[in-house]
Amino acid sequence: MAEVLVLVDHVDGEVRKTTSELLTIARRLGEPSAVFIGTGDNYSAAASVLAQYGAEKVYRIESADVTDYLVAPKAEALAQLVASASPAAVLIPSNAEGKEIAARLAIKTESGLITDAVDVQAGEGGGVSTTQSVFAGSYTVKATVTKGTPIIAVKPNSAAPEAVQGAAADEVVEVTVSDAAKTAKITDRQPKAATGRPELTEAAIVVSGGRGTGGDFSKVEDFADSLGAAVGASRAAVDAGWYPHTNQVGQTGKQVSPQLYVAAGISGAIQHRAGMQTSKTIVAVNKDEEAPIFELVDFGVVGDLFTVLPQATEAVKAAKG
C-alpha cells in the first residue's frame, strides 16, 4: 500500500490534535507516514503519540537549517520525501504555515493543491476526494487533484482521531537545504504566555465576545472556563485592543468549527460569520433582537451579556457540581 505523508504539527514536541486527525485520514488513503521536523529531545515526546494514532513510519528531520528559517526549507524537505517515497498524498495542517509549505511543495512537485479541506476520502476511481466549505460557509465544494501527488491542507476538527497502534519505525532523514531556501530567517521569537485554555481552532466549545463587552471580557472568560472552552473575539473587540488578534474569529482571523459556538455582544457581520458559520450548534447573547447573528442561532437570548452570562456560568457550575 502506498504511503501517505502527514506533516506533524507540534509545539516543542507536544503533538497537536490536528496531527492525530491527519493520521486518521491518512489511513483511509494508504499507509500513514509521519514527517517530524524538530529536535531530538522533542521527538521522544512526540513518537509515542504518533505510534498511538497509527503512524507506520516516522521520517525525522532534525537539521537546524530546516527549523530556523521560514517555510521554504520545510517545503524542500517534503519535496525530497515525495521524490523518494512516491506517496499517494501529502496531508498538511491547514494553518498559515502549513498552507505556505503546501503552496511551495505544489510548485516543486508539480502537483495540485487543495487547502482548507474539511473532509478527505479515498476517491471512487482512486485518487483523493476532498470537501471544502467556501464563501463564508455558504457553499460546500467537492474537489479532486488531477495532477501530481495530491497535496491537501486539512482543517482542524475534520476527523475524529482513531487510536490504532502503528509501528512508528524511526527513519532519520538527511535533507540538503539550498541556500535559496534560507533567505528569510526567523531572528526573534517571543513565545506567548499560555492561557491554560484550549487552542481556538481545536476547541470543542468556543465562547466569543464582541464590541458588546465594552472591553470587559471577564464575563466571557468566566463562562468559557465553566465550559472548558476557548475564548474568541470579533474584530471590533480586537481592533479596540481588548483581546489579542490571535483570538480573532472570522475571515481575517481564525475559522473555527466547534461543536458549540457562543457569540456574546457580537452582531454577526458576514466577515465574522465566515469564521464560525459551520459550527455545529450556535448560541448568541445580544441586547438587540434585530442583530443578524440571531438568524444563525440554535438558541438565542435577547438580553444584556453582563447579566445573562454570569447567571449561565453559575448554572453550568452548579450542574457540573
Partner: peptide, 8 residues
Amino acid sequence: WTKVESFQ
C-alpha cells in the same frame, strides 16, 4: 491541477 467536481 485541481478539479471542482460539484458544489452545493
